[in-house]
Computed example of a mutant assay.
Amino acid sequence: MNTILPSPHDPAEELRRLATAATPTVHARADLARTVLNRARRQRRVRRLGKVAAAVGGGLVVLTTVAAANLLGRSDYFTVTEPSEVMESTINVGERVVLNKKLSPARGDIVIVHLARDGYTYDAIFRVVALSGDTIGCPTGPAGRCEGVVVNGTTLPEPYLGAAVTDPFPTSTVPDHMIFLLGDNRARAHDSRFIGPVRLTDVGGVAVRIENRNGQVRAVPGAPAHPGPGDRDNVDPATQVPPAFVGSPR
């Protein structure tokens, strides 16, 4: 019987021969299989995201939403909804306040602070009226009422209060690393007149703008100007602040 030998020019046979000859010299990395498997998984995830994006007709929107969700809590800016009357009429119930967690509070700023009372903690929005080392008080005037809050010997201009009146309270010095806070609705706010100065470390953010229920934006009256978020800045969505203690503070 005649044996048919493979042609020396048979490509398939030549490849088998070369592979056999090369086998002893191949040294694969120990983690090669894992690397290839992980790469394949990543490619499958990308393909799945692409299919979802194509299905909704807005791949960019889907991927942007995913990215924004992953960035939640990482932005310098966040939003809260005011539930109480302590800052009326500067901030009305249901309006949103955009705050920057990286700013240091100055006189006139509106801030959100983390407070504790009766064994539980809560957040509240107030205005900074005095800083560490300042003297502050509301002395009784000739008419038997306070004519205005006095900081470091000077009456504080507060046009945002309108016709509201502040009841007298004694003059004191704000301790180091603390601030003195008042609500703009002085008749309803349980603020530093009753709870004392608040630690700077309890400040969670400084207000940069106010948004009403219709989405209209306005500056924070009586506060220093602060830049708000730009078009490319991520702003964490609005959360509601638990109502601060309101009603007659006495």
Rank of each mutant, 00 (worst) to 15 (best):
T3A: 12
I4P: 10
I4L: 12
P6Q: 10
P6F: 09
H9L: 14
P11C: 01
P11M: 00
L15R: 11
L18A: 09
A21Q: 12
T23M: 09
P24W: 02
H27R: 13
A28L: 12
R29F: 07
D31C: 03
D31M: 03
T35Y: 08
R39Y: 04
R39H: 08
R41I: 00
R41A: 05
Q43C: 11
V46I: 08
V46G: 00
L49K: 00
G50Y: 02
A54N: 11
V56Q: 15
G58L: 04
G59T: 14
L60D: 11
L60G: 04
V62N: 04
L63T: 12
L71R: 14
R74G: 10
Y77G: 10
T79K: 04
T79H: 06
E88K: 12
S89H: 08
T90H: 00
T90K: 04
G94Y: 11
V97S: 06
V98K: 02
V98L: 05
L99T: 06
L99F: 10
N100H: 01
K101M: 07
L103N: 02
L103I: 01
L103V: 05
A106Q: 15
A106G: 14
R107W: 01
G108N: 10
D109I: 01
I110Y: 04
V111K: 13
V113M: 02
L115N: 06
A116D: 08
G119D: 03
Y120G: 05
I125S: 08
F126K: 14
F126Q: 09
V128D: 05
A130R: 05
A130G: 10
L131P: 01
S132F: 00
G133P: 07
T135C: 07
G137P: 09
C138N: 14
A143N: 15
G144Y: 06
R145L: 10
C146D: 09
E147R: 13
V149C: 14
V150F: 07
V151R: 15
V151P: 12
N152S: 02
E158G: 15
A164K: 13
T166Q: 12
P168A: 11
S172A: 13
T173N: 07
P175F: 02
D176H: 11
L181P: 13
L181F: 12
N185M: 15
R186W: 04
R188M: 15
R188S: 14
R188K: 15
R188I: 05
D191I: 01
S192H: 05
S192N: 06
G196A: 01
G196M: 01
V198E: 04
R199N: 07
T201Y: 09
D202T: 06
V203M: 08
G204L: 14
G204W: 07
G204E: 13
G205P: 06
V206D: 03
V206W: 03
A207S: 04
A207P: 11
V208Q: 08
R209G: 05
E211G: 00
N212I: 09
N214H: 15
G215M: 11
A219L: 00
G222M: 01
P224L: 05
A225M: 04
A225K: 03
A225I: 03
H226Y: 03
P229G: 00
P229A: 03
G230I: 01
D231S: 09
R232V: 02
D233L: 08
P237N: 09
Q240L: 09
P243V: 11
A244D: 02
A244N: 08
V246T: 00
G247A: 01
S248D: 15
S248P: 13
R250A: 10
